[in-house]
């Protein structure tokens, strides 16, 4: 069986790899979109928090024997808390300044975090052993689906869906949307907007850490892992539309797929295709595919 003379097995494997990348793009760009919406800060430290998530899982396992499943909960909580502290102590001072200052500050934070981990663990990757319950896989007839990869796609999809529901369908979510749209008026209704900002940054950062834990068993854990990924994720956010929640999720998965398909037909272009799409989207719909056009 084949499509355009390409064996279906190769094709579906690339689709699966694309979906996995898309799962990471979606969860990371979702966090960036929430943070940008409320804080107006382009969080360049996002990749570093993703890296911290992966290292968090590794360190918990090596030093405390805490397994993957517990790490999926504990690490995002701890890194999210770190995010709250950083927001309160550092970011709070620059909200009145131009966007550029936020980018430079978070970029600097990212360099510091990556530098520390490079110094301690070197630049080569460390291995995180696959939890036993994720070893093995399913034979789907036309392809073999490893359980670890299936889990990443399902877990990321679920977290994205729950986050979307929480923002769009709950009362706290309506406060977040209100504070994003008209912060001063929302505060004048008696809603604690500064607290919402702190929690939102913490939550966005926790999403990045969650993605980092998910990544630990399937990619190598190294200090540069976030810096490599985050550039693509920024392109995804721009394509989806800055600040659009559903746009970030959908374009994350979509662009992962596009990348996978490109790998089948024109492998050399697969690492650039997202940036080409970004350029076209910026020309045709500057506010992004799902952003509000002014």
């Amino acid at each position: 069986m084949s499509i355009f003379n390409i064996p279906i097995q190769l094709f579906s494997t690339q689709i699966m790899l694309g979906l996995i990348n898309g799962a990471f793009y979606a969860i990371l760009s979702l966090g960036l979109a929430i943070i940008f919406g409320l804080l107006n800060i382009v969080n360049f430290a996002h990749g570093a928090f993703y890296m911290l998530g992966a290292f968090g899982a590794l360190l918990l396992l090596d030093h405390l024997g805490i397994n993957y499943w517990a790490a999926l909960v504990i690490v995002p909580l701890l890194i999210g808390l770190l995010g709250c502290v950083i927001e309160r102590s550092v970011l709070r001072w620059i909200y009145d300044l131009d966007h550029l200052y936020g980018m430079i500050l978070t970029f600097g934070m990212s360099l510091v975090m990556v530098g520390i981990f490079r110094n301690m663990y070197g630049a080569t990757g460390l291995a995180y052993s696959m939890p036993p319950s994720l070893q093995g896989g399913f034979n789907l007839g036309f392809m073999y689906l490893p359980a670890s990869r299936a889990f990443v796609i399902v877990a990321s999809g679920l977290v994205c869906l729950l986050t979307w529901l929480a923002i769009e369908k709950t009362r706290v979510g309506s406060w977040l949307r209100a504070a994003t749209e008209k912060p001063q008026l929302t505060e004048a209704f008696g809603i604690n907007v500064p607290l919402l900002i702190t929690l939102t940054y913490g939550f966005g950062v926790a999403l990045a850490a969650f993605a980092g834990v998910l990544a630990a068993p399937i990619f190598s854990v190294n200090p540069m892992m976030g810096s490599d990924l985050i550039i693509v994720v920024f392109a995804v956010v721009v394509i989806g539309g800055m600040g659009s929640i559903s746009g970030a999720i959908l374009s994350g998965f979509m662009l992962g797929l596009v990348e996978g398909v490109t790998k089948v037909f024109w492998p050399q272009a697969s690492s650039t295709v997202i940036f080409v799409i970004m350029a076209i989207v910026l020309l045709v719909r500057p506010a992004g595919l799902f952003g509000k056009q002014d």
């Binding site: 749209e181 008026l185 209704f189």
Partner: peptide, 18 residues
Amino acid sequence: GIYSSLTVEENLMLPPVV
């Protein structure tokens, strides 16, 4: 000050009871 990202009901329910 009507929020476009909120429904009519959400707009109505937004200000906390003081």
